[in-house]
Amino acid sequence: MPDDIVRHLSASLAGFEIIIVPGLDGSARHHWQSNWQRFFRAGGISVGRVRQEIWSKPDYESWIATLTAAVKKSKKPVLLVGHSLGSLLIAHAAKEGLLPDTVAGALLVAPADVENGPEGERFRVAAFSPVPLSPLPFPSVVVGSRNDPWLSVARARTFARHWGAFFVDAGRKGHIGNQCDLGYWLDGLLFLDRLVQNIRIKETGLRQPHKKTLQ
């Protein structure tokens, strides 16, 4: 990891706690979420992780409860970093009003379109349907891939519009998950940094042209 990126992220994220929210089947050791967790911890950035009891058989009520419990433990403003069903879980929890005001923002990567995903997998996520389309009460960024079997770009844009989120096209990255060898996924770190800058703008009401973001 380049030193300038490490320094920038350490400063940008210093006031937050990052909470990693994996999706269906969890995030393996080589998943970018797991790499980020190790990277943040090594850099002295506060980071936690939602740990569901059974990753392969998601239970809506228990997953929601585990997420909200993890968030409520934090003493700092929280940045949620969701992937797939984890991203959708965040949207559901927000719609139900279960997330505390300490949530400052969310990076929602490849939110699983449980209504239109792979036919052979829809039964496992049926309890998470329909996709909530209520505005999120915090700044957010939706990241979509052009060849994601779980989420078309059109639907990703629809989600972002309804959630009041910025949409980012990640290119052709599949489902941006366990099957993709993304390493530390530097583009994703850029998206996270962009989210932080959006939060700063919301807090101050002013753009900050002097504040550098990752390039």
Rank of each mutant, 00 (worst) to 15 (best):
P132F: 00
A28V: 14
L151F: 03
H210K: 09
D59E: 15
S27Y: 01
V196E: 05
I176P: 04
F191V: 11
K202D: 05
P132L: 02
D4F: 13
A156F: 00
E96Y: 07
G188Q: 02
A104D: 04
V81S: 08
G177S: 11
G44I: 12
S27M: 06
W63F: 10
W185C: 04
G86F: 09
L88S: 00
P137C: 06
A110V: 04
A11I: 10
E121T: 06
R38C: 11
V196G: 09
G177N: 03
T66L: 13
G174D: 02
R7H: 11
F16Y: 15
I19L: 15
W36A: 12
K212G: 13
P58M: 01
E61S: 08
W32R: 03
R161M: 04
F123L: 07
N147L: 00
G15T: 14
H31E: 10
F16K: 11
G177R: 02
N198P: 00
V103H: 04
G144F: 06
K173G: 01
V141K: 01
A156Q: 01
V47E: 06
L195E: 14
D181Q: 03
F16L: 12
L186H: 06
P111S: 13
L99K: 01
K72R: 15
L88F: 04
K73C: 12
A127Q: 14
G97Y: 00
E53F: 05
G117F: 00
V78D: 14
T66K: 04
T102K: 15
L80N: 11
H31C: 14
I18A: 10
G117A: 03
V131L: 09
A110D: 11
H175D: 11
W163K: 05
G48E: 14
A156I: 04
R124C: 00
P130E: 08
A65M: 04
E115V: 08
W163Q: 07
E115W: 08
I20N: 06
W150S: 07
I54L: 05
A28C: 10
T204F: 01
S27L: 04
R194Q: 14
P149F: 11
R41W: 12
L24P: 00
V6G: 05
R49A: 12
H31F: 15
V71S: 11
P2N: 11
